[in-house]
Every structure is written in structure tokens, then in C-alpha cells.
Write a protein that binds this DNA or RNA. Sequence first.
DNA 1: GGGTACCTGAAA
DNA 2: TTTCAGGTACCC
Length: 291
Amino acid sequence: MPELPEVETVVRQLAPLLVDRRIRRFEIRDRLLLGSVPLSLDGTGISAVFREGKQIVFEIAADGSPGRRAAAGNPVSKNQSVLGWLAIHLRMTGRLLWSFPNDSAQSRGKTRAEFAFEHGRLCFVDTRRFGTFAWHEERSSLRSAGVDPLRASFRIRNLRELIGSSTQEIKPWLMRQDKICGIGNIYASEILAEAGLSPFLRAGSLDRKQLTRLHKSIRKVLRDAIKHCGTTFSDFQDARGVKGKYQDYLRVYDRENMPCRACGHGITRSLQGGRSTYFCEQCTTLPPGNP
DNA sequence: GGGTACCTGAAA
DNA sequence: TTTCAGGTACCC
């Protein structure tokens, strides 16, 4: 499910529900997750919820007493009570679903971990069981290697420096989390379609104009997707079980043989690194010798 | 770098 | 029955 926009959607919904709340009970039910959190979280508090790359992070504080709300812009992480950070990665099919005590029972599949609060519960559901929980004692160990493309400080020249003289094709390059974090298979195709660039171009071959278009498209596509609460195919749901809306706006992804929204030409599906790539042959110039 | 593996279920 | 799926870790 989740690339940057879907993770951001979940974080924005969970933060007001969870920050400064006490975890009554935290329970892991899937053996694949056992041992990932080396201490009991029962009775601890959540002092912040944020996104780091594609991870959802709960800052866990020792003092979970309610009403100890930190002043805005003054995170609890400044004081001594922070125990650590729980980083949740949803991988392909993970979901974090919130329900209030009086919500009617929803069908949500098998719950693999659950946080119980006074005012509701948060269930981690993950069909394919690829999702991970990781415990960090240092804030710095959370940081993903790649730069967050929505940070104001991410400029065209940063993109140019990251790409360098890479001979990798630009579409798989965009999905490299050690360079830019947050872009996955859907948005890599969408970003290139928005920029009018062939997914088969060598990353290091992009000229100044193409880099400018790429940089602009990365930010535009991710921001627009967040505005529409992400993309849903089969699995993604936000924290309240609602699907994203961005699939209605996709230019190319999952649209093989359907008409390009710009020129009407049929969308092509191809494979790169074993993963589907979608693009319009007419709106992009293929490098020589490519399909 | 690319291929394969992890795991489950839906669809072809 | 086979193929495919939004991610990433690990192997040459």
C-alpha cells in the first residue's frame, strides 16, 4: 500500500488521536513481529507521531498520564521522559486502523498487533505480513538515508548531486530509498509521466531542463496525492478505514491500454527490475534502443 | 546493479 | 494453475 502520500495521510489522522494519550495495553499477536519491541509499552504515553520516510513513528514517553500535553511546538522529546521511538513500516499491505469504543464492528481482517487506549483502539492489520515494527533508543537512528523530497530544503541542485553520473534507469533510481525516501512504484511512474520523461532514460543523462521538470514533478505529484489522501487499489485505507482518492487522478499507473489523459494514445506497461512501469510512448521520448 | 525471497490472497 | 501486488533485505 504505502508510499509517502499514504503514510503521510495516516500520520496526519493518527497524530490528533494519539498524541498525549496513554497506552493502556499494547499486544503483539503475530510471531513475525515478536521481539521487535523489547519492552512493555503498557502505561506509557505517546508524545509525538510523525513520518520518517515511509515509516510511521510513535515517540514513546515514560509518563503516560493524561493532561500532560506539551505546548505546541514544544515536543516532549525535549524532556527526559522519552523512552524511545517505535517505527512502524507498513510495507505492502499494512494498515493502522482506529476505532472508537462505540464503533460498530468492522471487518478488518486479522489483527497482528493492537494498541488499546481509554478512548479507542488502534489495530495493525497486514495481509502479507511484510510490515515491521522497530524500536529505536536514539532519535538519530530513525533517520532514513535518503532525503525527504517534501522538505523545503530539497532543491534542484540536491537532486542533481544525488543523481550524479548514475547510469541506472531513472524510474528504478527514483525508488531508491537511500537517495530520496518515499517514492515507490506508483509514484515513480506518475512523477515521470507528469515530467514527460521516459522511465528508461539513464538518470545521469538528464539535462538541466529535464532535472528541473523532474524536481517540480516529484513535489507536485506527492503533494497532490496527499491532498487526495493517497491512492487505493485493493488494500490502502486510512486510519478510519476510508480509501484514498488519488487513484481517480492517476495518469498512467495501472492504466495499461487505457487512453493517455493528455494525448489519447494507449498507455504502455513494461517491466523494470521485475516491476511494472507505466508510461505513454507518445508523451515521452524513449532513449535509443528501448521498447 | 539485477534476481530472488519473504507472505498471502485476488484475479486471470 | 499461474501471475500479480503499493517494499525492501540479501545474494552474487
